[in-house]
């Protein structure tokens, strides 16, 4: 049951439009490991491809793709965690040394959190998902998300100090 050509076109349009956003989310989840992020996005897009006939009629395929990505990350990370490097490759963009340092510090700090803590923070503060949406994506309750958000922020703060800018060496 191959996806029909119209659906393939439809899928490709979706994948092209969403891959950048998925990739950036994946980079944050992966604590800056861009190779892992690439794997995660390709895996996510692969799942979207397989289920496209159902996904394409969903209310919000883009949101669904992010949910698939986060869940994929959570199961994937467990498999790879012993080999994972919190920050291996920092994107090479034109930025001041200070910006780069801040970014590295942040990614390194994220890399020290558990996968679930990272997922909660990325969903809530990068994707601006509500507690309810985060709970649905992580298949848990709003109460658990709320508690976990507080704890994850607490842990991050313990790593970074009171202010991220304070952490950056001047």
């Amino acid at each position: 049951m191959d996806v029909k050509q119209a659906q393939v076109d439809d899928y490709l349009e979706f994948a092209a439009a969403r891959s950048a956003s998925l990739y950036r989310t994946a980079c944050l989840l992966a604590g800056g490991d861009t190779h892992l992020a690439e794997d995660l996005v390709q895996d996510t897009l692969g799942r979207m491809y397989v289920h496209w006939h159902k996904v394409s009629t969903a209310d919000n395929p883009a949101a669904y793709a992010h949910t698939v990505l986060v869940r994929g990350f959570l199961s994937h990370r467990r498999r790879r965690s012993s080999q994972e490097r919190p920050v291996t490759r920092i994107p090479e963009t034109i930025a001041s040394d200070r910006d780069v340092t801040t970014r590295m510090a942040l990614l390194a700090a994220l890399g020290q959190l558990s996968a679930r803590d990272r997922a909660v923070l990325v969903l809530r503060y990068w994707q601006d998902s509500s507690v309810e949406e985060t709970a649905a994506a992580l298949r848990t309750s709003a109460g658990v998300v709320r508690t976990q958000t507080s704890r994850a922020l607490g842990r991050l703060r313990a790593v970074l100090g009171d202010g991220i800018t304070d952490f950056v060496p001047r």
Binding site: Y11, L12, A15, A16, S19, L22, Y23, E38, V41, Q42, D43, T44, L45, G46, R47, M48, Y49, V50
Partner: peptide
């Protein structure tokens, strides 16, 4: 990413 996604799919 897109080509990899299709291949993976």
């Amino acid at each position: 990413l897109v080509n990899g996604g299709v291949r993976e799919g």
